[in-house]
């Protein structure tokens, strides 16, 4: 299943970054596909990006909401929020595990041999604050002298934007290098911080700072496709604890907001207690293991959590 997930991640990476003519045009894709929402975090100023980033679009719409209203346009971000909500309602944070290019990037970084560390659980709440303040409230209410807000998360923090758009654009358009200032170095700092952290710990940006993941996490209890625990089969062996890349103790909190439905726990469970369900109906069913299989010791494959 992990191999299938890797292929799906690669497919979404290619679909959302499928404009390979950028070395010739030296610019970004400007075609009609940019009306389609990228399910994962993927900067639309990336030269190869074919879709729009929901976080970037939402901030831009909220930042310019007063000007829109003055012009008689009711651009409140409903199209963007509606799209994000439909995705969240279907799969929630499964996007993080299966369709996010920056999630894939962090997973690849974590494969670099190094000592692995856990992440202090309370840090997970930072991303909800970032969603509320840097994506919604500050773009909406912190205005410049012309009445415009700013894209706070993109401008000051987003490491995906620096990696996918900032650095490539500086390479493609050398004239832009004259504009580099403290803002860019601030963003570069966050990019390197999360790169180093991702080598040492599993998915640190997803777990602590991604507002898109925070939004999808709000659907953890009600999303259509989710993992389900069968308490009758669970032996509390804690095999699911050891393999989770998000530090979730699945058998203790099956609706955990951190769960990205990567199915690592389902694969690790020897008792078939964790299954995938759609709308309440289980769709995965593994054969019950034999007694001999059950007696084999459980091997922890990931101790970073």
């Amino acid at each position: 299943m992990d191999l299938i997930r890797k292929w799906v991640q690669a497919l979404f990476f290619i679909l959302t970054n499928g404009y390979w003519n950028f070395p010739v045009t030296k610019g970004i894709y400007k075609g009609p596909l940019k009306i389609v929402c990228s399910p994962g975090l993927n900067c639309y100023s990336c030269p190869a990006a074919t879709t729009y980033c929901p976080l970037g679009s939402l901030q831009q719409l909220l930042a310019g909401i007063r000007m829109s209203i003055e012009n008689g346009q009711l651009f409140f971000g409903l199209y963007v929020v509606g799209t994000m909500g439909v995705i969240g309602g279907f799969v929630g944070r499964m996007v993080c595990g299966w369709a996010c290019p920056f999630g894939l990037f962090q997973e690849l970084l974590n494969k670099i041999p190094s000592p692995k560390f856990g992440i202090w659980p309370p840090l997970r709440y930072i991303k909800y604050g970032l969603l509320l303040f840097m994506v919604i409230l500050l773009p909406l209410f912190a205005l410049d002298e012309f009445g415009f807000g700013s894209t706070w998360f993109c401008k000051y923090l987003c490491p995906a934007g620096t990696l996918e758009a900032g650095l490539p654009m500086l390479f493609l358009q050398p004239g832009l290098r004259a504009n580099i200032g403290p803002l860019f170095f601030n963003k570069l700092f966050f990019l390197f911080l999360f790169i180093i952290w991702a080598v040492l710990a599993s998915r640190p940006f997803c777990r602590t700072a991604c507002p898109l993941g925070a939004f999808y996490a709000l659907f953890s209890r009600i999303k259509l496709v989710k993992l389900r625990l069968d308490p009758a089969k669970c032996t509390d062996c804690k095999a699911c604890h050891n393999v989770c890349p998000m530090g979730v103790r699945f058998n203790e909190s099956p609706d955990d907001m951190e769960c990205i439905s990567c199915l690592a726990c389902s694969k690790a469970c020897k008792f078939n207690a964790i299954t995938l369900e759609i709308g309440g109906l289980s769709i995965t069913s593994q054969p019950r293991p034999s007694v001999c299989q059950l007696k084999k010791p459980t091997q922890a494959t990931n101790t970073s959590n």
Partner: peptide
């Protein structure tokens, strides 16, 4: 959204 997504927001990317 299309209009925004087809323009490079330089301040947004630092």
């Amino acid at each position: 959204v299309l209009e925004q997504a087809t323009q490079i927001c330089l301040s947004c990317i630092g």
